[in-house]
Design a protein around this nucleic acid. Structure first.
Lengths: 231, 231
DNA sequence: GTTTTGTGCACTGTATGCAGAATATCCGCA
DNA sequence: TGCGGATATTCTGCATACAGTGCACAAAAC
């Protein structure tokens, strides 16, 4: 939502890079760390979170940890049970389907908007990412493919130049990330997914919003099917 | 997301009403209270929040207050500036347009889904609300109209039976509520808005998802125009 | 043997204390 | 009178302390 403080360059000459030393609050660091721990499965769904223990593990007192848990609860990664603390959220199949449906709608909106408002340079960046994706696919590197895949989807949403949309997309993608980590292995549907990405890249390149939205929709529908199988 | 604990009736005879005394955590109470204070304008946009002062005003120590602020930041109602605390978020016209665009997409999705999955009883409830809306409109009661209006939109999203969708809608609606509180007064467009609600009710009654989505889209577009004028 | 009641422990929720950063104040000086 | 810098104050961020709740285990009663 809010970018880093604008840092009005003291010297008149514009600063080439952002040299601000990243003084992120402890709270913020804990949030990102915990989010990773959840999405990467280091915290099992349904597991109760012991604040003292986890705090010690992170080398942090309970206060910033608790604040971080409130943030994660807002993102739907943990649930807050009164007088019983935080529990890692476990997603039912319906939860997943529901989130996917929203994710799909948001990305379709993003795709349409991106085709209208994106700069040529911005589109070029996404196409460059797509090129990397193709290479990873050819090489059969699943994990890098997975990461670039996510990056492309995020990049498209970023092109839409709508911070609210981006934020909601981030939240949902974080929820789904945990699931896809399970569901993305060994399936012949990989080829189909890659083909859809080709279509997406082509549609974006010619700024065909409707076509892009259509492919994105199909892509997510397939993704859901794949998850259903893995469940 | 999670409902109240089911309270398995201790006595074998089913308890007629829910007698559970509402022991919401202080944190939760502060969240709702603060949210109201923001949306009702008791906290001005851009205003820095003094934790001790606000804590005293609410009769609460800093700890639960700070936790509540983290939650509200996640909902985009306040912004957290490192080492400077929380400031009430101020929305630019673009922010509003962006959020409205997402809100529109979400409600259109909800409308389509509602026409498929909603029960007849659920639809009847929305139509009953619509009846109240019509009465308030006829009587010229703007504030009640405004509240029922919001309730109807929420109800339609609820019909879609998608908690994720509902949650995101809630967040965006809370953001917009603050704005509409300003923008909803004295305009001849009221009649047009009411007419659109008539269309919405009709489309929902006959479960015509596409028509419903179309009207909802128009409705929000008009809403944005109205806000633009008031700005 | 089963159910109930009591007690202890573990953990969350809230308040308070302390250190460091940011801002405001004041004084000297041009 | 205006400006710059040192100092004082205020406020956030984090840690810790305390109180209350829920749960588990055990003992007792039926």
């Amino acid at each position: 939502m809010s970018s880093i403080a604008p840092t009005p360059s003291i010297a008149s000459a514009p600063v080439p890079e952002d040299f601000a030393i990243p003084r992120q609050s402890l709270h913020g660091q804990v949030v990102t760390r915990l989010r990773d721990m959840v999405t990467e499965g280091h915290l099992a769904p349904g597991q109760r979170i012991n604040e003292v223990a986890l705090g010690q593990a992170l080398g942090v007192s309970r206060t910033p940890l608790r604040e971080a848990l409130k943030t994660l609860a807002g993102e739907g990664l943990v649930e807050l049970v009164p007088t019983r603390g935080a529990v890692v959220r476990s997603f039912s199949l319906k939860d997943i389907a529901d989130s996917m449906e929203v994710l799909k709608a948001l990305e379709q909106l993003a795709g349409r908007r991106a085709c209208v408002v994106a700069s040529d340079a911005g589109i070029a960046e996404v196409l460059a990412l797509h090129e990397q994706l193709r290479e990873r696919y050819a090489a059969g590197d699943r994990l890098p493919y997975f990461k670039i895949n996510q990056a492309i989807h995020t990049a498209i949403v970023t092109l839409a130049d709508n911070p609210t949309l981006l934020r909601m997309h981030e939240i949902l993608q974080a929820q789904m990330k945990r699931i896809r980590f399970i569901g993305h292995e060994g399936t012949e549907k990989w080829a189909a997914a890659m083909a859809e990405h080709e279509e997406m890249a082509a549609a974006l390149a010619r700024r065909d919003g409707e076509a892009l939205a259509e492919v994105i929709g199909r892509h997510h529908d397939l993704g859901l099917v794949r998850i259903r199988e893995a469940y």
